[in-house]
């Protein structure tokens, strides 16, 4: 059994300690987060994470990995081969259960020249695939899963992580960009087959630079549908944004004020799409102040 090593990862506003003796895990983390990783210089940490193989006879037959953070084990042991996805999900759990300093939107967020486009993740939305494609086309990745908002200013804080693509989305992204830097394939996770898209160097380098919210776009993947942006009323945008916020209820009045701040600052749309390349073109046009197809109804 190899000796555990400890890495320090800066991810968005968080500093995370990662201790593990699992050899391939360190390599995978290094592939995704490169310069955001350092060795332990005695930093103050937000979370102290360990990924270990449970001991015992069972470990011979079915190798497993256990995630622990500061003495807690929130999950059952998982297959060892899924160590990296387990790390990612575990870190998400840490953030989701404690980072209420921020409003946490269930949304992909990308930035065009310091202005953020928020893509809330309503079910069946395809937000991850869309965020991945927009990032590959040059937009800065702020986040794929947690849109972190500083409530008092409505600024969006980056949290650039590997974007998990599931099942058919993997092929969709490779078709969109055959050179897309994807990590290893994890064939059997809770969510099916998963590969992660690596955030580019620029997104990692700028992960301490917030962006100002400018567009709020609720995506909806509809097979065969043309790419159409439909303006959404602010009231409806308020309702849907609050619905897509992990900690809206918990934040109470702070959350209410923050959603109001965002909704007043942005142009709001719903967006149906089916083809990834056409969708990216449409959203880039929106970001450049040009619009290709406007649906009827609602007000901007």
């Amino acid at each position: 059994m190899s000796r555990p090593t400890k890495l320090i990862l800066d991810t968005g506003p968080f500093r995370v300690g990662i201790t593990s003796a699992i050899p391939q895990l360190g390599d995978t983390i290094a592939f995704f987060y490169r310069d955001a990783i350092s060795t332990d210089r005695g930093d103050v940490l937000d979370y102290n994470i360990g990924l270990h193989r449970p001991p015992g006879l069972r470990a011979m037959v079915r190798p497993q990995v256990v995630f622990d953070v500061d003495g807690l084990r929130p999950f059952d042991p998982q297959p060892l081969e899924n160590a990296f996805p387990v790390f990612e999900w575990g870190l998400n759990w840490c953030i989701a259960t404690s980072a209420h300093r921020y409003m946490m939107l269930h949304a992909g967020t990308i930035a065009f020249d310091g202005q953020a486009m928020i893509l809330p993740g309503t079910p069946g939305s395809g937000k991850s695939t869309l965020s991945a494609a927009l990032h590959l086309s040059g937009a800065r990745l702020l986040s794929d899963e947690f849109g972190l908002v500083r409530p008092e200013t409505a600024e969006l804080l980056p949290l650039p992580r590997g974007i998990p693509l599931k099942n058919a989305s993997i092929e969709a992204i490779l078709e969109f960009d055959p050179a897309a830097p994807l990590g290893p394939t994890y064939p059997k996770t809770r969510k099916g087959r998963v590969r992660h898209l690596r955030p580019d160097a620029d997104s990692l380098r700028c992960q301490a630079q917030p962006a100002v919210p400018r567009w709020l776009v609720f995506p909806k993947y509809v097979a065969g549908a043309p790419e159409v942006l439909t303006p959404l009323s602010r009231l409806e945008a308020f309702r849907q944004l609050a619905f897509n916020c992990f900690n809206y209820t918990l934040l109470g009045e702070t959350g209410f004020e923050a959603v109001d701040r965002i909704v007043r600052a942005v142009d709001c749309y719903t967006f149906t799409f089916s083809r990834l390349d056409a969708a990216v073109t449409a959203l880039q046009a929106l970001a450049q102040g040009r619009q290709l197809a406007i649906g009827a109804g609602g007000k901007a």
Partner: peptide, 21 residues
């Protein structure tokens, strides 16, 4: 108190305020 620890405490305070209400 290191800034990131203050932020963690502010997060806990938000949770506390919620359960109080």
């Amino acid at each position: 108190i290191p800034a990131r620890i203050v932020d963690q405490m502010i997060g806990a305070r938000a949770q506390t305020r919620y359960v109080q209400i």
